[in-house]
Simulated assay, not measured.
Amino acid sequence: MTDQPLARASAAPAHRHFVLHKPWGYLSQFTSEFAKEVKKKRFLGELGNFPAGTMAIGRLDEDSEGLLLLTTDGRVSEQVRSRHIEKEYYAQVDGLLTPAALASLQAGVDISLHGTPYRTRPCQARLLAAAPDLPPRGRRIRDDRHGPTSWVAIVVTEGKFRQVRKMTAAVGFPTLRLVRVRVGEVRLEGLPAGASREVSSFFKN
Rank of each mutant, 00 (worst) to 15 (best):
G58N: 05
A130E: 15
L27V: 09
H21I: 09
D94N: 11
F202H: 01
A91Q: 05
D63L: 06
R59C: 04
S200Y: 00
T2Y: 15
L176I: 02
S104V: 00
A153D: 10
T116A: 14
I141C: 08
F34A: 08
T2R: 15
R165C: 07
S32E: 06
R81V: 08
K166T: 07
L134P: 04
L96Q: 10
P13Q: 15
E33N: 13
T120D: 11
A129L: 12
G48Q: 06
V152G: 09
R180T: 09
M1K: 09
P148Q: 03
R180C: 11
A193M: 03
P192R: 01
A52P: 00
T72F: 06
E86W: 00
V171H: 11
G184T: 02
S32K: 03
R121W: 06
G194R: 00
H15N: 15
F50W: 07
R137D: 12
V181C: 08
V181T: 14
A170C: 11
S28M: 10
E88W: 00
P174R: 09
H17Y: 15
L176R: 10
S150M: 09
L188C: 02
V152M: 07
I111V: 13
K40W: 01
V155L: 15
A130N: 10
P23F: 07
K204E: 14
V109K: 02
T98Q: 07
N205M: 05
P13N: 13
L44R: 06
L70W: 05
C123L: 07
L176D: 03
T120Y: 10
T168P: 14
F43G: 02
L60V: 08
A153T: 09
D110S: 14
R197T: 07
S28F: 05
E198I: 03
A169P: 05
G115I: 11
T116G: 00
S28L: 08
I154T: 10
G95K: 08
L191C: 04
L6T: 14
K36S: 15
R162K: 14
L44A: 11
W151M: 07
V164M: 13
P13G: 09
R165P: 02
K87E: 06
S196H: 15
H15C: 12
F203M: 01
D133Y: 02
F173P: 04
L97M: 13
R162Q: 14
K22E: 12
E37I: 02
